[in-house]
């Protein structure tokens, strides 16, 4: 299945991703103004939000491809779910690392048990568990099915986790995009969007690579 067509898509995505990431770096470090009160540390925001978006998107892909896998029973959907979960987990880790780096000077604490932070941490734990299922299950097909069911249950759990922790407490900055008073500087907004688009292409690039690695691995196992 990994063929010329795959390779062309990969080269195409590589080009676009390179351009978009370069553009977003230019916007972030040269064009976007320095935030008045927070200073230079605010620039981590563009990576933080883009990674958060990417990890949520990746976990949504896990959810959808898990459903299709259980329904159609085609292996490719299992591979997509698995690849997407791995990428989502990496970007979720980036969110959890960049957040505290920003929070230390701004909140004067690395961590707080706020709704968004706690939900992201739980999200990370859920998908860590998801990744654990496959290698530890004795039978490969059973592992794939169990992971698919867990991928569905885990995704449905996220909004409930968020709601329950929000009732518990919250101090994370409100979403700056839809607030009426002030909000983001237009250049900052543009920078954020370019960085989100760049990260989305990065996701597509990495998932194509990851899926093709699993397909090749599968082929080698079948031949030997």
């Amino acid at each position: 299945m990994v063929n010329k067509y795959f390779y062309r898509t990969y080269l195409f995505l590589l080009g676009i991703t390179f351009l978009m990431i370069e553009a977003s770096l230019y916007y972030i470090f040269i064009l976007a103004p320095v935030e008045e009160t927070m200073g230079i540390i605010q620039k981590i925001f563009y990576f933080h939000v883009a990674s958060a978006w990417l990890s949520f998107f990746a976990f949504f892909v896990v959810f959808v491809s898990s459903i299709i896998f259980l329904w159609k029973k085609e292996k490719i959907w299992d591979i997509i779910a698995r690849s997407s979960a791995e990428i989502g987990l990496i970007f979720c880790t980036i969110v959890l690392i960049t957040g505290p780096i920003w929070a230390r000077p701004i909140w004067n604490a690395w961590w707080s048990w706020d709704a968004r932070l706690t939900t992201t941490l739980i999200l990370w734990m859920i998908y860590m568990a998801y990744i654990f299922i496959r290698p530890f299950t004795e039978n490969e097909i059973k592992g794939a099915k169990a992971a698919a069911v867990f991928g569905i249950i885990g995704f449905l759990d996220v909004p409930i986790v968020y709601m329950s922790i929000r009732w518990w407490r919250t101090i994370h900055p409100q979403a700056v995009l839809n607030s009426k008073s002030g909000g983001l500087d237009p250049v900052m907004l543009k920078t954020l969007f370019i960085s989100i688009i760049g990260f989305t292409f990065l996701y597509l690039l990495v998932i194509i690579l990851n899926v093709s690695i699993y397909l090749v691995k599968d082929e080698i196992e079948n031949r030997s």
Partner: peptide, 26 residues
């Protein structure tokens, strides 16, 4: 039912269960 098919079943169940159970515990 998932954990029983894994090699480390006794440890696997809480790893799978606890993160999902956060809203219920709260």
């Amino acid at each position: 039912a998932m954990a029983v098919n894994t090699k480390t079943r006794e440890i696997m169940l809480p790893i799978l269960l606890f993160p999902l159970m956060v809203p219920l515990i709260l």
